[in-house]
Design a protein around this nucleic acid. Sequence first.
DNA 1: ATAAAATGACTGACTGGTCAGTCAGTCACC
DNA 2: GGTGACTGACTGACCAGTCAGTCATTTTAT
Lengths: 216, 216
Amino acid sequence: MKLSEAKTSADSSAASVSDRKAERRLAMIATAARLFARDGYADCEMESVASELGVAKGTLYLYFRSKEELFCACVDQGMRELQETVQQAAQGSIAPFDRISAAIRAYLLFFEQHPEQAELLIQERAFFHDRPKPTYFTYREASRERWRVVWAELLSGGSIRDGLTVDQILDFIGNLVYGTMFTNHFLGRSAGEQHALIMDIFYRGIWSDAQRHTGE
Amino acid sequence: MKLSEAKTSADSSAASVSDRKAERRLAMIATAARLFARDGYADCEMESVASELGVAKGTLYLYFRSKEELFCACVDQGMRELQETVQQAAQGSIAPFDRISAAIRAYLLFFEQHPEQAELLIQERAFFHDRPKPTYFTYREASRERWRVVWAELLSGGSIRDGLTVDQILDFIGNLVYGTMFTNHFLGRSAGEQHALIMDIFYRGIWSDAQRHTGE
DNA sequence: ATAAAATGACTGACTGGTCAGTCAGTCACC
DNA sequence: GGTGACTGACTGACCAGTCAGTCATTTTAT
């Protein structure tokens, strides 16, 4: 849908001016995210984004100060959607292990359905690597607090073996899904079957019972 | 060391012309890798690389066709060194589990000691993402064959529990160390203590014995 | 009801700075 | 005086960001 049409249709509704602006902003972000991911930050011209939207380049600068700001808005929007998706998936279950499993599944599926978001995370680091911390990790740490209580419950309930701390577990699973997500993205793999395997090894390890007794 | 000095010292030895060329090529790659990682591919000017080496820009073009080729040489050289480092670490042990543990430790330490290599992997994807597959994954798949036999041995020896295939295990551990490496890199974490934890959860899982019996 | 004026969203040709890559020229050494 | 490694000023392409101008819509005046 062209922005110009969006404007016309919005006119007929009772949407306020600021609503319409926010709506257009989102449309710009969605298109820009796709093109940034497809062409890369450097090769994606503002002119292209504008023409894809059916507006002139100057219009983009009425909504975003600079190319960089537009890009950051794309990353931020993507991470917010990821967070929401994962949180909603987790809320579908009560049992802690089910919540965890659902969240990880939702995480992997999100990037499978929005591969451009994986690409944007790479682009961000590549072009703005003077920043203290990638946006992804800011969001990861924010959600950490929420998950800490879930794991603490499992730990105190005796479901987790001795010698492991909540932070160690959070680091492990965080790194695992992060690596899995990127590998899936680069090699075009699907997250579906993988998910069960990941949880299986994460919960039970790879050792046989015989090896467990020799190993410790 | 300036290239010009390298040349003089090489002259006094019995090094052939092609040896000297290869040596200078490596010096260029080392410097370029550092600057590409520090400034990013786009912001790293050929002029800077040249002046850091104490040569003129034109000289770089006597050794590399283009900026892109120089960059690729950096990535390739880095991956070759990674492979060699990991392989050598693995050769220090005989027992399969020890070899695996040593290899993973060496892998994480390599990127800790050569953070520019992690950065180059990101830059590669960001700037040349039309390529079919990142160099990293080409090397990862090449080394996969070597590790497959190690795991097959463990599997047939009864050390691994039923229901897991070699490929599943290779994927899991590959994704885990990949994610851990990048997280360490971005958050400035050290691989030392982590290594033991990773292997522990990978081998034994997080479940307590009580949970293992309920869960299956 | 009609015209005139004000508004502000949108446009797109243009500018200024950037930098990869070139090549005619230099120079050290044989 | 021949060779070839090295130089660095120069060029041409590129593109983010600008801003004077256009036009549709709303407001005010008559």
